[in-house]
């Protein structure tokens, strides 16, 4: 990942528009669609998610030389699940209402593709500081994305924003459009926002809509295959079979054991 000077600020900023985890990489779609019925839910989910991502990146980056390659995925999952349990407790204690409205999507942060993806693609090859910046960037990008989606859906669907009544919603005047609060509206708004980010990326970074960045760095990214760490893992163990579904999305196993140890050793 580039040289050190570039990385720290770059790792942070890239997560916001250029490689926004939700709208560009299209990871973590399940919670994004489910909890964004209001701005406050989106924000809460984003913050909880950022915390887990940050902590898991730190822990995994710190342990990257201790965890044997062959059991790394189960090890990561255990670390992440424990962190999620901590977050669940914190939310229950301090914001019981938020905990209620996010429901099962808090424990489901465990299986969010972004966290495992960042662990696999970034934290296990980079130092702690770079991993923190990467996690913060991705976390802030995801939080802003959820806030944007939640805000839009709340304003359009319920005519409020963070619970405040919108001035143009009135008896007999303009009415909120109920469908945006329902699952169908979630899909539609998400689609439109992905298209918008395609356009922005096209204008700012002259990147074509279908031209998604080097997928080896983003396991689980967009389109063809999600859960790519597992595609990679099974590709590594079973050879040709897994190629069938990874067509184009994950050209080769992301971390060959040798490659990883060499790249982490020349970092220090």
């Amino acid at each position: 990942m580039a040289n050190k000077n570039k990385s720290l600020s770059y790792e942070f900023i890239k997560g916001i528009v250029k490689e926004n985890p939700l709208f560009v990489l299209v990871l973590g779609t399940c919670p994004a669609l489910a909890v964004t019925t209001s701005a406050i839910n989106g924000l809460g989910m984003g913050v909880a998610f950022t915390f887990v991502l940050l902590m898991s990146n730190v822990v995994i980056s710190a342990l990257r030389k201790v965890i044997p390659d062959s059991v790394r995925i189960p090890a990561y999952i255990t670390i992440i699940a424990s962190l999620v349990t901590i977050v669940q407790f914190l939310l229950k204690a301090y914001t019981p209402e938020l905990d209620q409205s996010l429901g099962i999507f808090i424990p489901l942060i465990t299986v969010n593709c972004i966290i495992l993806g960042r662990a696999e693609a970034f934290a296990n090859r980079n130092g702690i500081l770079a991993s923190i910046m990467d996690a913060l960037g991705m976390g802030v990008g995801f939080t802003l994305a959820l806030l944007l989606m939640g805000g839009l859906r709340e304003i359009l669907g319920f005519g409020t924003f963070f619970g405040l009544q919108m001035p143009w919603i009135s008896e007999g005047g303009l009415q909120p459009i109920g469908i945006f609060g329902l699952p169908a509206g979630g899909f539609a708004i998400f689609g439109v926002l992905v298209a918008l980010f395609n356009k922005l990326n096209h204008l700012w970074y002259s990147r074509k809509p279908d031209d998604i960045m080097d997928r080896r760095n983003y396991p689980g990214s967009i389109s063809e295959r999600t859960d790519a760490p597992f595609v990679a893992a099974s590709a590594a163990s079973e050879g040709s079979e897994a190629v069938a579904i990874s067509e184009g999305s994950v050209p080769e196993p992301m971390t060959k054991p040798g490659e990883r140890s060499s790249s982490s050793s020349d970092k220090d």
Binding site: V26, L182, G185, G191, V194, A195, H202
Partner: peptide, 23 residues
């Protein structure tokens, strides 16, 4: 499909319509 909507965005909008059908 318009350029920006190619690929995933159009798929999501289609999913939204399918979701309406299930409602």
């Amino acid at each position: 499909i318009p350029e920006s909507f190619k690929g995933l965005p159009s798929t999501l909008v289609a999913a939204s319509i399918l979701s309406v059908a299930f409602m």
